[in-house]
Design a protein around this nucleic acid. Structure first.
Length: 479
RNA sequence: GCUCCUAUCGUCUAGCCUGGUCUAGGACAUCGCCCUCUCACGGCGGAAACCCGGGUUCGAAUCCCGGUGGGAGCACCA
């Protein structure tokens, strides 16, 4: 039995986009589930727009997510090269073949003429296509003319009256009429192919069996099938994934906010959370599971369970899931992950201290980038308005009394008192009274925040002297 | 405009193929309660959806037809 070969073919014209990454993810899950091969191919034929730095962003982003190609520009493979700009002989071979067989032809219409034609069709409310008058020019004559001018393009001679049908693995039967396609362009020059042609040649040469891509490619499919058929290539299976949408339900784009994997990474999302989350937009395992490991996802992935309609990218749910993954981390791991979000903390002693601090925030952390702001008071004296010290409607005198009591209690405790001990002593002091009137101002004095971990946890880490200093500081504010 | 795709809570979705068990299930978000000095975590509970209209049927979220809504594509980009 043949193992499936799937491919992701991004163009390096921007940082790795969420949508592209999701397509890559689904290809990866499908390939791994089927024990197949996942191929990464760079579609950089448009040299004007492509850029090496974007290519690197694609490599880095996929690697970070844990989506590792089996074959690609970095890892090589039996069908190398995997960059279209390095495969021009292949395209030229097939373009010349089509030209020679009269299945493609030179079109000498200027862009201006084409634009006018388009305007006319628009006015007549007809489908926009170009049925070229040059399609039946004698090859010899066309060749001669092409040798003299550079103002031409190569078009596919689309057959008339054909119904083109394919079975989409996700949507079922999809059908198009060839008469609505026109004589579409396939190359600028014999060695400069256009997208619809290049992918067909590459997919054939690379023995791709399954083309899994975004729904936005669905109308390209009949063109590609026509080319493949004419060249005698076997048809791959097609599967068109639903698009990822912004909150307004249009295709996710820059105006919706962060759209590249880099940005999510920089904000402190965990790769496994993003992996898990992206897998679940447009797909589900058929039961109630949501937090799923990569291995689980691969094992249970089923193309048939992929959704047909577009799905909104819900950042709030991503945040929740990221929090879930953060809570599953060991403190040591979490410290490593948080390190980039702090500046200049390197020594082992600092690391140990950081570990204690981070462990405290672990349950409420949604994104790693929040960590520095959340625990800032452990590293420097907090600044806050003295009104924050007020518990409910108590008077200034009450606040002072509470802080003085706290100071007195804390002074009587040994230097290394642990949280449990601190808690016991303070609770004894409070007796059956209102805890808030004592604990709230103490906690604010320590953290300077209206929301933070508990005062005992903070005191344990801060130590007796620093805690006392902060309580005295608060007292000074109230004076 | 034309072509194609699509339609269950605000969002992601289960259920649809093989009609009744659906008083439509789960999750995020939201609201309330509990825990609690605060926030979070955790626990409990609430509000919240079958696009509309016909048909088939004893019975339709599920099958059929027609509308409507949403999306994408219509390059010498990919």
């Amino acid at each position: 039995m043949l193992l499936p070969r799937v491919r992701i073919a991004p163009s390096p014209t921007g940082n790795l986009h969420i949508g592209t990454a999701r397509v890559a993810l689904f290809n990866y899950l499908f390939a791994k589930n089927q024990n197949g091969v996942f191929v990464l191919r760079i579609e950089d034929t448009d040299i004007e727009r492509s850029d090496k730095k974007y290519e690197q962003s694609i490599f880095d982003g996929l690697r970070w997510l844990g989506i590792d190609p089996d074959e690609g520009p970095e890892q090589g493979g039996p069908y190398a090269p995997y960059r279209q700009t390095e495969r021009t002989e292949t395209y030229e071979k097939y373009i010349r073949q089509l030209l020679a067989e009269g299945k493609a032809f030179y079109c000498f219409h200027s862009e201006k003429e084409l634009a006018e034609e388009k305007g006319r069709m628009m006015a007549e409310k007809r489908v926009l296509l170009h049925s070229c008058t040059h399609r039946d020019t004698a090859p010899a004559e066309a060749h001669a003319r092409a040798a003299e001018t550079s103002d031409f393009i190569i078009r596919f001679k689309t057959p008339a009256g054909r119904r083109i049908e394919f079975t989409d693995l996700i949507r079922g039967t999809v059908a198009f009429e060839s008469d609505l396609l026109g004589d579409f362009s396939i190359a600028k020059r014999p060695n400069v192919p256009l997208y619809n042609f290049a992918v067909v040649a590459d997919d054939y040469e690379m023995k791709i069996t399954h083309v899994i891509r975004g729904e936005d490619h669905i109308t390209n499919t009949p063109k590609q099938m026509l080319i493949a058929e004419t060249l005698g290539f076997p048809m791959p299976e097609y599967a068109h994934l639903p698009l990822i949408l912004g909150p307004d339900r249009s295709k996710l784009s820059k105006r919706h906010g962060a759209t590249s994997i880099d940005e999510y990474r920089a904000q402190g999302y965990l790769p496994e959370a993003l992996f898990n989350f992206m897998a679940l937009v447009g797909w589900n395992p058929g039961d109630d599971r949501e937090i799923m490991s990569k291995e689980e996802l691969i094992r249970d992935f089923l193309l048939e369970k992929v959704q047909k309609s577009g799905a909104v990218f819900d950042v709030q749910k991503l945040d929740w899931m990221n929090g879930e993954y953060i809570r599953r981390k060991s403190v040591t791991e979490l410290v490593d992950l948080c390190m980039p979000f702090f500046g200049g903390v390197t020594s082992e002693k600092d690391r140990a201290y950081l570990g204690k601090v981070i462990a405290l925030e672990q349950p409420r952390l949604k994104k790693l980038s929040e960590i520095a702001e959340r625990v800032g008071y452990f590293f420097s004296e907090p600044e806050y308005d003295k009104e924050l010290l007020r518990w409910k409607k108590v008077t200034d005198a009450d606040i002072r009394t509470s802080l003085e009591r706290a100071e007195k209690v804390l002074s009587g405790i040994s230097d290394e008192a642990a949280k449990a001990k601190l808690e016991r002593v303070f609770l004894d002091e409070i007796g059956g009274g209102d805890r808030g009137s004592l604990l709230w101002p103490v906690r604010v004095a320590l953290s300077g925040k209206k929301a933070s971990p508990g005062p005992f946890e903070i005191m344990e880490i801060l130590g007796k002297e620093e805690s006392l200093a902060r309580i005295r500081g608060a007292l000074k504010k109230m004076a």
